[in-house]
């Protein structure tokens, strides 16, 4: 196993009318070849922008922190610093799509409504695989078949609005994979689909990832999905990663109060009579980010005098796992 992506100290800030906000602060994670990293967190915790930063897809108002490092190992073994690629450079264009592919939450909105599925697929195929038009079309049909779209030869000439939601997401997966990425970023790819379709798409993605040997970053706010698809997991809260480690480990033995809260919030079939247990409180707005540990305002175990003052360091109690919480430092334990 080798690292294909290593992100260190990623910080993102935006210039807004109300001043500069920093919704992502000091995020570090790695993705191993052929493995899936699950990125979990509530809405607004900065999952999407962290991954968009990798491909320089953030709007012009965004700035990366000076200490941010994003090192990507390309298919040919070359190490590329993603933050330093020039805009419009050939290298960046190769990374986008050819090395790293991205699937978004809204399958409808990800397609342009005025071109056929085939047109948009062939564009990517010709760009990244250097095929001629006719071959590209054949390739596209093959890809559609692969993601389980029946009658692909006809579907290829249809417009996005002629497909059902699940079909569209399958087509989007086909489109993204047809460029041949080594790393796939899936940003809540199943959220907009209904439950049965969700499971099918999830299965499809897991199978394809195994078959193609891709690395994957799978974004979701559902720890249940993580259990199904991810090898590793990173839990994000308000722009920082509060806990990370192998998925099984983290789910079986969560260290951070926030992760525990998230797990408790999953409704379980065995206890249908119990009330749902959401994590208490609301996620603070990015303009009013609390000082100290960002989670202290909602934490039931917060240590007064410590958690609201100092940011906790990352510690590792269990090998392979890391957590940012005063409860897991000797200092914090003595204060409690």
């Amino acid at each position: 196993m080798s690292k294909m992506l290593s992100v260190e100290n990623l910080s993102i800030s935006f210039r807004t009318d109300e001043g500069v906000i920093t919704p992502v602060k000091g995020v570090s994670f790695t993705v191993e070849k052929g493995r899936t990293l699950g990125l979990v967190g509530e809405s607004g915790s900065g999952k999407s922008i962290s991954t968009k930063a990798l491909m320089q897809l953030l709007p012009g108002t965004a700035r990366l922190g000076a200490a941010s490092r994003m090192i990507y190992t390309a298919k040919d073994g070359q190490q590329i610093s993603l933050g330093n690629l020039r805009h419009g450079s050939k290298e960046l264009r190769r990374i986008r799509g050819g090395e790293i592919g991205m699937i978004f939450q809204e399958p409808m909105a990800s397609f342009s409504p005025v071109y056929t599925i085939g047109n948009q697929m062939m564009e990517a195929i010709m760009l990244h695989r250097g095929l001629k038009k006719r071959e590209a079309r054949q390739f596209a049909i093959g890809m559609l078949n692969k993601v389980g779209i029946s009658n692909a030869a006809a579907r290829v000439d249809q417009y996005p609005h002629e497909l059902s939601g699940g079909m569209r997401q399958r087509a989007m997966i086909a489109l993204t994979l047809s460029a041949g990425p080594a790393l796939l970023i899936a940003d809540e790819p199943t959220t907009a689909l209904d439950v049965t379709i969700q499971a099918q798409v999830l299965d499809l993605m897991r199978d394809l990832q195994r078959e193609l040997g891709m690395g994957m970053i799978f974004i979701t706010h559902d720890l249940g999905v993580i259990a199904q698809i991810a090898d590793d997991v990173a839990v994000m809260y308000l722009g920082t990663i509060v806990e990370r480690g192998p998925a099984k480990e983290v789910i079986r033995n969560p260290q951070h109060p926030y992760t525990q809260g998230l797990l408790d919030a999953i409704p379980s079939l065995d206890h249908l009579h119990d009330r749902l247990k959401p994590v208490p409180g609301d996620i603070p707005s990015p303009t009013a980010r609390p000082g100290g540990c960002p989670f202290h305002t909602r934490c039931t175990q917060a240590i007064a005098g410590t958690c609201e003052v100092h940011e906790p360091p990352e510690t590792s109690a269990i090998p392979g796992c890391a957590v940012r919480c005063w409860l897991h430092t000797s200092q914090g334990r003595s204060a409690a």
């Binding site: 303009t287 009013a288 305002t297």
Partner: peptide, 8 residues
């Protein structure tokens, strides 16, 4: 709107 409820 929501900001008002978050006055910490």
């Amino acid at each position: 709107m929501s900001d008002a409820t978050h006055l910490t």
